Simulated assay, not measured.
Amino acid sequence: MSEKKGLASLAGAPDQSMFKLLGQVRAMSSSRDREQMTLRLVTAMRDVLGASEVTLYAVSASPKGPVGAIVAVARPDHEQVANEDEDHPPVALHEDAFLDGAIRSSDGVAESNTDGIYRLALAMGDAGNPHALLVARCDVAPEARVRDAFLHVAHFYQNQLDLLDYAELDTLTKLLNRKTFDENFDRFIASVGRAQQTDPERRQQDDLAARPSWMGVIDIDKFKRINDTFGHLFGDEVLLRVAEVMKHSFRQRDKLFRFGGEEFVVLLRNVSEADARAIFERFRTAVETHEFPQVGQVTASAGFTRIDPVLPPAEMLGHADEALYFSKENGRNQVNCYEDLVARGLLEGPKQADNTGLQADIDALFD
């Protein structure tokens, strides 16, 4: 029978482990990169606990119970942040009684099972509804103060992420803000470029890596009229609800930004054009059928374009804007792909297109 207990009551550890842990904490505190901080966390826990594996999961809800997506893993021979270019099937956390219990605990739990495996787990975020779960597996139970340090370092990591969130997230919608777009887009572009430079034969074997990536621009239809008719408080409520619909409609690895006002930008990774269109259509339909108190029905339009690492970011954003403009000009509440519109002769190609004043035209049309 497994034995569970709160980690907060545990105590005792060698000085060498504590010094090693302090070094990792110092490195973590000096980083402003979310991925590097996450890598430091799982590496620190592996080294200090002498763990055979440390895994950080992003936790989300499912009809059957909480599931986890692997964010980072550290084992004795290597550590890595999950590759966003790969699909990782969700882990059914609710099917493991220990992990399910850890999700519902605010203090963390420990277990020694009959197989001789010792596990520690700590949920991060709201009690009972965490956004992450840190799990360590050890062949030998660590000393008490080391186990206690696991809890405190994980909380330190969470506090650092909260500071990053304050700087990187839009205060109203909690989507990524405009300020973080450049950094995220540069990283996104670099990833797409690496995939394209991969050996063609290997890309052919790796179906996922061979798929393109996309940038989409979304705008709430007639949003100015909503503000003018119902007031800015209801306008903010519409923005909040649309942002929530976005979080549920797009995939966990997609990047969602509030660009300002009622405009949003989405970065989709490794999907065919048909699947990209289906994802945007899923979002469009979800907004159209969502109940907005007082306001009634709200719709959104979108335009998207293929990511090409050779093109300047402004040009790709302009292509997505042109597709969005077409959606707005031709009835709103629809999704269009720039490349498809060009192929059908409905938009001029990039060499002939004159984007001067395009954003002003779009703004005027949205009013």
Rank of each mutant, 00 (worst) to 15 (best):
T229N: 08
Q359E: 11
M316H: 11
V91N: 05
I189M: 09
E288P: 04
D308H: 12
F283P: 02
I279Q: 13
E111M: 11
Q197W: 05
G128E: 07
N129H: 14
Q158M: 08
T38E: 08
A274V: 07
K224E: 02
L120V: 01
F292E: 12
D363H: 13
D199C: 03
Q80D: 10
A74I: 04
G6W: 12
A58K: 10
I189D: 06
E281T: 12
L172W: 06
V238I: 06
T171V: 11
I362R: 07
T305Y: 09
L346D: 04
Q205H: 13
E95L: 13
I226L: 05
G12R: 15
K328C: 07
G128V: 02
P350Q: 07
P200N: 07
E273W: 02
E79W: 04
C138K: 06
Y338R: 03
I226D: 00
G6F: 14
G260K: 08
G128P: 09
D308V: 03
A11Q: 14
G349N: 14
S30H: 14
H290G: 00
E53T: 12
R211N: 04
S9K: 14
P89G: 02
Q197T: 08
E168T: 07
R40L: 10
R277Y: 14
E348K: 14
D100F: 13
L41Q: 05
R32W: 11
E329K: 15
V271K: 03
F98K: 01
N159H: 13
L164C: 01
D228R: 06
Q158C: 00
E339M: 05
Y118R: 05
N159C: 05
T289A: 11
A323M: 05
V342H: 06
F264C: 00
L122W: 06
A314E: 15
R277W: 09
A243F: 03
F283Y: 12
A74C: 04
N355D: 15
E111K: 08
Q294C: 05
D47T: 09
E339A: 06
K222A: 06
V265L: 11
V91D: 08
S60K: 14
V335P: 07
E339P: 00
M316D: 01
R332K: 14
L10I: 09
A110N: 03
R137F: 15
E168F: 02
L163Q: 12
A353Y: 13
L346M: 12
Q252E: 12
E237C: 01
R277T: 11
R253F: 07
K4M: 10
F223L: 02
S272G: 11
D165H: 14
A343D: 11
S30P: 04
R137P: 01
A58C: 03
A360E: 15
Q16N: 12
E291Q: 13
D207I: 10
A8E: 14
I117S: 06
L358I: 00
F257D: 00
L341I: 06
L39Y: 03
D254G: 01
D148C: 11
T299Q: 12
V25T: 10
E348W: 06
I70K: 13
D77V: 07
E53C: 12
F230S: 01
V245K: 09
A121K: 03
Y57D: 02
L208S: 08
T356G: 05
N270W: 08
V245A: 06
V265W: 04
Y338H: 15
R187L: 04
Q197M: 12
F188A: 01
R194N: 09
D148S: 13
E273Y: 03
K179Y: 10
P89Y: 05
S31Y: 03
A276V: 01
